[in-house]
Amino acid sequence: MNYENILSEYNNGITTITINRPKKLNALNKDTIQELHDAFEDADNDSDTKVIIVTGSGDKAFVAGADISEFADFSVEEGGKLAAQGQALLFNFVENLSTPVIAAVNGFALGGGLELAMACHFRVASNNAKMGLPETSLGVIPGYGGTQRLPQLVGKGRAMEMVMTAGMIDATQASHYGLVNHVTELEELIPFCEKIAGKIMRNSSVAIAEAIRAINANYKDGVDGFDVEIEAFGNCFGTEDFTEGTTAFLEKRKADFPGK
């Protein structure tokens, strides 16, 4: 598929999606959000894709925020609709994908950019990364899940401070907070993510999908995550991957998972 605002490339089990609006510091507008949805959906439906990496073009920004010019004159109703549609189309969608998604955060990840990174299953940052939710400095709050996912990752107090001050933290502080898993040199960011992807791809994609579902269940209101884990655990017993994994273990060989 041809895109105007992003790039999507497949190689050796990994689909890399790059937000490609460098003149706008890769800011998210309506069209880019739709294209990202389509690219993530295509990658998730591709049985050859075992891991998705999302990053920004250039070395200045992952995503520097939302395109404010698109909604500066919105009404209350339009603002609520903007947040609801964006969450459903991209942010919640990414969080609940069955294919692992790694955010490779290069440069600024602000506002909607940090919200996109937080929707991914985990994050790796380059050492020039700067992260924050500056929305209160514009008279609004994060609307793409930021007030929910940031406390889950860094704790309530730190999330309150970051949102209230509208300030940025650097990659080292983000690592200390638990917002990112690893920090690398900029030139090593994608190779490092690919190395992690390689470790993921050795394991059962079916089991990983069930693990994602079970882990996410713990953060959903009204859902008992333990019940979801029990169901998901049982589901694994009916898969070809379980048969291969246990057989390989007993035969003292490396498993060759069929992904079924």
Results as ranks from 00 to 15, higher is better:
T172L: 09
K60C: 01
M164C: 09
A197E: 08
M164T: 14
R213A: 13
A104I: 02
G56I: 03
N181C: 00
A39G: 06
S137E: 13
E95R: 15
G157P: 00
E185V: 04
N12W: 00
T136V: 15
I14G: 00
M201Y: 08
F40V: 04
D224T: 10
M131D: 06
K23N: 14
S137L: 15
R213L: 11
L110A: 11
F237G: 15
N11M: 02
R213I: 01
V63G: 02
L150E: 07
M1G: 13
K220F: 10
G111M: 01
P134I: 03
G65K: 07
S57A: 14
L7Y: 04
A174T: 02
Y219Q: 12
E231S: 14
A248T: 05
E9A: 07
N2Y: 07
G155D: 03
F91M: 08
F71V: 06
G234C: 11
K60S: 12
E194A: 01
F242D: 05
G139R: 13
E4M: 10
E135I: 07
C236V: 10
A232G: 05
S137V: 10
L28T: 06
G107N: 06
N11H: 08
A88H: 14
K24C: 01
E194P: 00
A66K: 02
S75I: 01
I208L: 03
D59N: 14
M1H: 12
K199P: 01
E41K: 15
P191M: 01
C236P: 00
R202W: 01
A103T: 10
G234Q: 15
A211L: 13
A129H: 05
E35S: 12
K81G: 02
Q148Y: 12
